[in-house]
């Protein structure tokens, strides 16, 4: 009940957070702006240029999906860091922690609140993806669960890392570091196989391999259907992601247990 109370309060505060509303609105405008060429391409498609137009449409869909996915990572990290940092900064944490509440319960409530926000984001992202595919003249022919579960696990990782950093470092440093990490990881992931072994090992150990958690691995955009992957593959990759998130969350709980709670 206590964890649920904190989670619902955290989720409620996100929905009222002007900064989140502003960034989401700006991002929605950007996505809508990028969708308009799709309609134009669709209108211009004739029997002779169908193949070429199809390629343009697919590129457009992939770009918007990647943008939304990347923005989601930043949102998860920022929301997680802010959910704890804002309580410390304003001093509201003192009244809350004076209640018969354990520190892990507070952190778990915050984490679940962030995941609730990201669940809403993932559903919106899925809706946007389906809309894009429909605008591009495509249809999904298979189950869409990967488009829901994979991003959620990825965002759970970013939220856990951010939560760990904000319990350990000053909120400003933590948020800066997590944004840098969230931006660098896709770059590392794309060049992972080309790296020398001495770089690859620490990167492999400490940075999340979000490329394996990308739902786009299973998506054949041109046919807008899901690649048939064995369930063992899904289970292994998702277990990796959840394990990674859990480790960081438990580290966050450990550090938070010994942290001084005061107005920052």
């Amino acid at each position: 009940m206590k964890v649920r109370t904190i989670a619902l309060s955290t989720f409620g505060s996100f929905l009222r957070n002007k900064l989140i509303i502003l960034f989401c609105s700006l991002f929605a405008c950007l996505v809508l702006l990028m969708m308009t060429p799709l309609l134009a391409y669709k209108a211009m498609t004739t029997a002779s240029n169908m193949q070429q137009m199809q390629g343009i449409v697919v590129n457009e869909v992939v770009t918007v999906m990647s943008l939304m996915s990347g923005f989601g990572s930043l949102l998860a990290a920022w929301a997680a860091a802010d959910s704890v940092a804002s309580e410390m900064k304003s001093g509201t944490i003192l009244a809350v922690m004076a209640r018969p509440l354990r520190r892990w319960q507070f952190l778990a409530g915050k984490y679940i609140g962030v995941l609730m926000l990201m669940a809403v984001y993932v559903v919106i992202m899925l809706g946007a993806t389906l809309l894009l595919a429909w605008l591009g003249g495509q249809r999904f022919h298979a189950s869409i669960w990967t488009l829901l579960v994979y991003p959620m696990v990825r965002y759970a990782i970013w939220a856990a890392i951010a939560m760990f950093l904000v319990t350990w470092l000053h909120p400003i440093f933590a948020m800066g570091l997590v944004v840098i990490l969230a931006s660098l990881v896709p770059f590392f992931a794309s060049t992972f196989t080309k790296m020398p072994a001495w770089v690859r090992l620490p990167v492999h150990l400490f940075l999340p391999l979000t490329n394996v958690l990308s739902e786009q691995r299973f998506l054949t955009i041109t046919k807008a259907s899901l690649k048939p992957f064995p369930w063992v593959s899904h289970a292994t990759v998702l277990a990796y992601g959840l394990d990674y998130a859990l480790v960081w969350f438990l580290l966050a709980v450990f550090v938070f247990q010994y942290r001084s709670l005061s107005r920052d």
Partner: peptide, 20 residues
């Protein structure tokens, strides 16, 4: 300890609340 906190009422200096 939560058993103690269950029996304590605390008013911090410059009390801060969720403004919304």
């Amino acid at each position: 300890d939560v058993r103690a906190k269950a029996r304590i009422g605390f008013l911090p200096e410059n009390f801060a609340f969720y403004r919304y």
